[in-house]
Design a protein around this nucleic acid. Sequence first.
RNA 1: GCUGGAGUCGUCUAGUGGCAAUGACAAGAGACUGUAAAUCUCUCGCGCUUCGCGCUUCGUAGGUUCGAGUCCUACCUCCAGCA
Length: 285
Amino acid sequence: MNTKNTQHKEYVGPTIVIVGPTGSGKTSVAIEIAEEVGKILNLPIGEIGGEIISADSRAIYKHMDIGTAKPNEDERKRVPHFGLDLVEPGERFTVADWKDYAKQKIIEIRARGHVPIVAGGTGLYVDALIFDYQFRGPTGQKVIKANKKSYTESSTTEQINCSDRQKMVSEYKIFGIKWPTAQLRKRLLQRVNKLFVQELYDETAYLAANYGWDSQAMKSNIYQFAWKYVSGDCSLESAKELNFYDDWHLAKRQMTWFKRNNKITWLPLEKIKPAVLKCIQDGKI
RNA sequence: GCUGGAGUCGUCUAGUGGCAAUGACAAGAGACUGUAAAUCUCUCGCGCUUCGCGCUUCGUAGGUUCGAGUCCUACCUCCAGCA
């Protein structure tokens, strides 16, 4: 047992976090980094030095593969991925669940001597991790802020200590992929055009048949638009258009979320990999 | 050429004499610590000293009226029908 582990010294460098709006290229750049990081860690040739944890609130669902732009089988073979296919659509899985899961995986990856790379666009998940949000109890009530009028219906809840958004856990180094508006829109448009194919319709039909449309997982993403087209409610063109608008709105909301985090190093896509590799090389947390 | 219908904020749209004028989409800004690709808020003719004020708007030009997107006349454009 320890014969193998001798070459697996625990990794003590930074945990890399890569964020960005949908369609910014997080998945592919994370894979590229994971594949190259072995050199920096002086791992044996052929050993993949990075492992990816997806911070994506839709990729946690099984059977939602092409509609959520999950890394495909090939990509998952190249680099170990976590945070995918954790629960059935409609099953309850919260930020708190994800945070615990991610923390556990990070510990495991580090123990293997590899670099944990958290990549995803769900800002709440990322913040929960890097700012170490404290949640009450395993399946406790929603955290209520005293002065939020929208939550006044519950009298049993109370204000709890919220973690400070200025105090990021020092282990993390967070990078953001920055795109000019016009270019990101173009990328999203191209992605939409690629996605509306038979495989998507099949996936949509499968999900609709097995899980219905009630769950939040099925609400307001590509599936509803694909379904509209498949069932003849609208033309292919308008289904694509509607989905594009939806994607763009999401991207904007994500940017709004990330904007307030001043710990993020924003870089264009092509500069992310060199910056991350350098960061790992420098090694200090 | 004649007859009928239609021209309103980027787009579609409500409005048939009374406050820049409805709704939707798009666009922009923001909130969000327990299903977050969710949910929610604000702006959206122009300019200001912006809980208000000023200016200019509903194809174009006139007219009626205290008051016109709305009524009348002419013209322009588009659509349909007849020639």
